[in-house]
Protein backbone atom coordinates (compact mmCIF):
# COMPACT_ATOMS: atom_id res chain seq x y z
CA UNK A 1 0.00 0.00 0.00
CA UNK A 2 2.77 2.37 0.84
CA UNK A 3 4.51 1.28 -2.32
CA UNK A 4 1.71 2.53 -4.54
CA UNK A 5 1.41 5.79 -2.70
CA UNK A 6 5.10 6.35 -3.09
CA UNK A 7 5.07 5.53 -6.79
CA UNK A 8 2.30 7.97 -7.55
CA UNK A 9 4.22 10.57 -5.64
CA UNK A 10 7.29 9.80 -7.71
CA UNK A 11 5.84 9.42 -11.16
CA UNK A 12 2.66 11.41 -11.64
CA UNK A 13 3.06 14.88 -10.25
CA UNK A 14 -0.41 15.92 -11.41
CA UNK A 15 -2.88 18.19 -9.69
CA UNK A 16 -4.59 15.70 -7.46
CA UNK A 17 -1.74 13.27 -6.94
CA UNK A 18 0.65 14.14 -4.12
CA UNK A 19 3.52 16.10 -5.56
CA UNK A 20 7.03 14.90 -4.82
CA UNK A 21 8.14 16.82 -1.79
CA UNK A 22 11.71 17.16 -0.71
CA UNK A 23 12.64 17.21 2.94
CA UNK A 24 13.72 20.83 2.73
CA UNK A 25 10.39 21.90 1.27
CA UNK A 26 8.45 19.95 3.81
CA UNK A 27 10.28 21.46 6.73
CA UNK A 28 10.90 25.00 5.51
CA UNK A 29 7.54 26.46 4.66
CA UNK A 30 7.90 30.15 3.93
CA UNK A 31 5.21 31.55 6.16
CA UNK A 32 4.32 35.26 6.01
CA UNK A 33 5.81 37.07 8.98
CA UNK A 34 4.92 40.32 10.71
CA UNK A 35 7.27 43.11 9.54
CA UNK A 36 9.47 43.22 12.62
CA UNK A 37 9.88 39.47 12.88
CA UNK A 38 13.01 39.17 10.77
CA UNK A 39 14.71 41.95 12.70
CA UNK A 40 13.76 40.32 15.97
CA UNK A 41 15.21 37.02 14.79
CA UNK A 42 18.30 38.87 13.63
CA UNK A 43 18.73 40.31 17.11
CA UNK A 44 18.25 36.93 18.78
CA UNK A 45 20.80 35.32 16.45
CA UNK A 46 23.22 38.18 17.02
CA UNK A 47 23.15 37.73 20.79
CA UNK A 48 23.41 33.94 20.57
CA UNK A 49 26.33 34.01 18.13
CA UNK A 50 28.15 36.68 20.13
CA UNK A 51 27.83 34.57 23.27
CA UNK A 52 29.12 31.44 21.51
CA UNK A 53 32.02 33.40 20.02
CA UNK A 54 32.81 34.85 23.39
CA UNK A 55 32.97 31.51 25.13
CA UNK A 56 34.95 29.93 22.28
CA UNK A 57 37.61 32.65 22.38
CA UNK A 58 37.49 33.01 26.15
CA UNK A 59 36.37 36.64 25.70
CA UNK A 60 39.66 37.80 24.22
CA UNK A 61 39.33 41.27 22.74
CA UNK A 62 41.75 40.76 19.83
CA UNK A 63 39.60 37.86 18.61
CA UNK A 64 36.87 40.39 17.83
CA UNK A 65 38.68 41.45 14.63
CA UNK A 66 37.37 38.22 13.15
CA UNK A 67 34.49 37.86 15.51
CA UNK A 68 32.47 41.00 14.74
CA UNK A 69 32.30 40.45 10.94
CA UNK A 70 31.63 36.73 11.42
CA UNK A 71 28.83 37.32 13.93
CA UNK A 72 27.22 40.04 11.77
CA UNK A 73 27.39 37.90 8.63
CA UNK A 74 26.06 34.86 10.44
CA UNK A 75 23.13 36.74 11.92
CA UNK A 76 22.44 38.49 8.58
CA UNK A 77 21.68 35.08 7.07
CA UNK A 78 18.13 35.41 8.45
CA UNK A 79 17.48 37.93 5.66
CA UNK A 80 18.60 35.51 2.94
CA UNK A 81 17.35 32.13 4.11
CA UNK A 82 13.73 31.00 3.86
CA UNK A 83 11.96 31.50 7.15
CA UNK A 84 10.83 28.45 9.03
CA UNK A 85 7.80 28.72 11.27
CA UNK A 86 8.71 30.05 14.68
CA UNK A 87 8.99 27.75 17.67
CA UNK A 88 9.62 27.90 21.36
CA UNK A 89 10.86 25.32 23.80
CA UNK A 90 9.19 24.36 27.05
CA UNK A 91 11.86 24.14 29.77
CA UNK A 92 10.25 21.21 31.59
CA UNK A 93 9.74 19.38 28.32
CA UNK A 94 13.36 20.02 27.40
CA UNK A 95 14.71 18.49 30.61
CA UNK A 96 12.43 15.47 30.24
CA UNK A 97 13.37 15.10 26.61
CA UNK A 98 17.12 15.34 27.27
CA UNK A 99 17.01 12.61 29.93
CA UNK A 100 14.79 10.36 27.83
CA UNK A 101 16.95 10.99 24.77
CA UNK A 102 20.14 10.06 26.66
CA UNK A 103 18.61 6.76 27.80
CA UNK A 104 17.20 5.97 24.36
CA UNK A 105 20.41 6.69 22.48
CA UNK A 106 22.34 4.43 24.87
CA UNK A 107 19.71 1.73 24.36
CA UNK A 108 19.91 2.20 20.59
CA UNK A 109 23.69 1.92 20.52
CA UNK A 110 23.78 -1.07 22.89
CA UNK A 111 21.13 -2.79 20.77
CA UNK A 112 23.01 -2.31 17.52
CA UNK A 113 26.34 -3.25 19.15
CA UNK A 114 24.84 -6.49 20.45
CA UNK A 115 23.57 -7.36 17.01
CA UNK A 116 26.95 -6.56 15.47
CA UNK A 117 28.92 -8.69 17.94
CA UNK A 118 26.45 -11.57 18.10
CA UNK A 119 27.61 -14.54 15.96
CA UNK A 120 24.03 -15.19 14.81
CA UNK A 121 23.49 -11.50 13.94
CA UNK A 122 19.75 -11.30 14.63
CA UNK A 123 18.42 -8.96 11.95
CA UNK A 124 15.07 -8.81 10.24
CA UNK A 125 15.43 -5.57 8.34
CA UNK A 126 12.75 -3.83 6.33
CA UNK A 127 10.97 -0.57 5.63
CA UNK A 128 7.82 0.79 7.21
CA UNK A 129 6.11 4.11 6.74
CA UNK A 130 4.77 6.43 9.38
CA UNK A 131 2.72 9.62 9.05
CA UNK A 132 3.64 12.05 11.85
CA UNK A 133 1.12 14.55 13.20
CA UNK A 134 3.82 17.05 14.16
CA UNK A 135 3.80 20.40 12.33
CA UNK A 136 6.56 21.21 9.83
CA UNK A 137 9.68 23.11 10.76
CA UNK A 138 11.81 22.51 13.82
CA UNK A 139 9.55 19.84 15.43
CA UNK A 140 9.65 17.66 12.30
CA UNK A 141 13.38 18.07 11.81
CA UNK A 142 13.81 17.07 15.43
CA UNK A 143 11.52 14.09 14.86
CA UNK A 144 13.39 12.88 11.76
CA UNK A 145 16.78 13.19 13.43
CA UNK A 146 15.74 11.54 16.67
CA UNK A 147 14.22 8.51 14.89
CA UNK A 148 17.71 7.63 13.71
CA UNK A 149 19.05 7.54 17.26
CA UNK A 150 16.23 5.41 18.70
CA UNK A 151 16.80 1.65 19.02
CA UNK A 152 16.41 -0.15 15.72
CA UNK A 153 14.96 2.68 13.60
CA UNK A 154 16.45 4.93 10.93
CA UNK A 155 14.63 7.69 9.08
CA UNK A 156 15.39 6.72 5.49
CA UNK A 157 13.26 8.99 3.35
CA UNK A 158 10.57 11.62 3.38
CA UNK A 159 7.76 10.88 0.90
CA UNK A 160 4.99 13.45 0.93
CA UNK A 161 3.74 13.62 4.49
CA UNK A 162 5.14 10.22 5.41
CA UNK A 163 8.46 9.13 6.79
CA UNK A 164 9.90 5.90 5.45
CA UNK A 165 11.62 4.25 8.38
CA UNK A 166 14.16 1.47 8.08
CA UNK A 167 13.97 -1.04 10.93
CA UNK A 168 16.57 -3.56 12.05
CA UNK A 169 13.76 -5.80 13.24
CA UNK A 170 10.38 -5.26 11.61
CA UNK A 171 8.64 -7.15 14.41
CA UNK A 172 9.16 -4.20 16.77
CA UNK A 173 6.16 -1.96 17.42
CA UNK A 174 6.97 1.05 15.27
CA UNK A 175 3.65 2.86 15.83
CA UNK A 176 4.07 2.74 19.60
CA UNK A 177 7.73 3.84 19.56
CA UNK A 178 7.26 6.72 17.15
CA UNK A 179 3.97 7.74 18.77
CA UNK A 180 5.84 8.07 22.08
CA UNK A 181 8.58 10.04 20.35
CA UNK A 182 6.01 12.40 18.81
CA UNK A 183 4.41 12.99 22.20
CA UNK A 184 7.84 13.80 23.69
CA UNK A 185 8.70 16.23 20.91
CA UNK A 186 5.29 17.87 21.20
CA UNK A 187 5.98 18.34 24.92
CA UNK A 188 9.46 19.67 24.15
CA UNK A 189 8.04 22.40 21.89
CA UNK A 190 5.02 22.98 24.12
CA UNK A 191 2.66 21.85 21.35
CA UNK A 192 -0.76 20.36 21.67
CA UNK A 193 -0.70 17.54 19.14
CA UNK A 194 -3.29 14.82 19.19
CA UNK A 195 -1.61 11.60 20.09
CA UNK A 196 -1.88 8.50 17.95
CA UNK A 197 -4.14 6.77 20.42
CA UNK A 198 -6.77 9.52 20.51
CA UNK A 199 -7.26 9.86 16.74
Amino acid sequence: MRKTAEQTAEQTPGHDAPRPVRATQMVLRDTPLPPGARWRRFAVKLVALALIWGVLTEFRLDALYFGVPAILLGAALVFVMPVAPGWRISPAGAVNFALWFAVQSVRGAVDVAQRAFSPAMPLRPGFRSYAPDLPGGAPRVMFLNTITLLPGTLSAEVAGDEVIVHMLDTRADLEADLGALEARIAALFGLNVKSRGST
Binding site: S105, A109, V112, A113, L123, H166
Partner: peptide, 30 residues
Protein backbone atom coordinates in the same frame (compact mmCIF):
# COMPACT_ATOMS: atom_id res chain seq x y z
CA UNK B 1 34.18 -0.27 22.46
CA UNK B 2 31.20 1.40 20.74
CA UNK B 3 33.43 2.65 17.93
CA UNK B 4 34.62 -0.92 17.42
CA UNK B 5 31.02 -2.14 17.49
CA UNK B 6 30.18 0.41 14.82
CA UNK B 7 33.00 -0.78 12.61
CA UNK B 8 32.12 -4.44 13.16
CA UNK B 9 28.54 -3.65 12.18
CA UNK B 10 29.77 -1.74 9.15
CA UNK B 11 31.69 -4.82 8.04
CA UNK B 12 29.23 -7.54 9.00
CA UNK B 13 25.75 -6.17 8.37
CA UNK B 14 24.18 -7.37 5.12
CA UNK B 15 22.97 -4.16 3.47
CA UNK B 16 23.53 -0.42 3.26
CA UNK B 17 20.65 0.50 5.57
CA UNK B 18 21.64 -1.86 8.40
CA UNK B 19 25.19 -0.57 8.17
CA UNK B 20 23.88 2.96 8.57
CA UNK B 21 22.25 1.93 11.86
CA UNK B 22 25.61 0.73 13.13
CA UNK B 23 27.38 3.86 11.97
CA UNK B 24 24.97 6.47 13.31
CA UNK B 25 24.04 4.89 16.63
CA UNK B 26 27.18 3.08 17.81
CA UNK B 27 29.69 5.69 16.66
CA UNK B 28 27.48 8.47 17.95
CA UNK B 29 27.41 7.03 21.45
CA UNK B 30 31.12 6.21 21.19
Amino acid sequence: VFFIAGTVGLLRFPDTYCRLHALTKADGLG
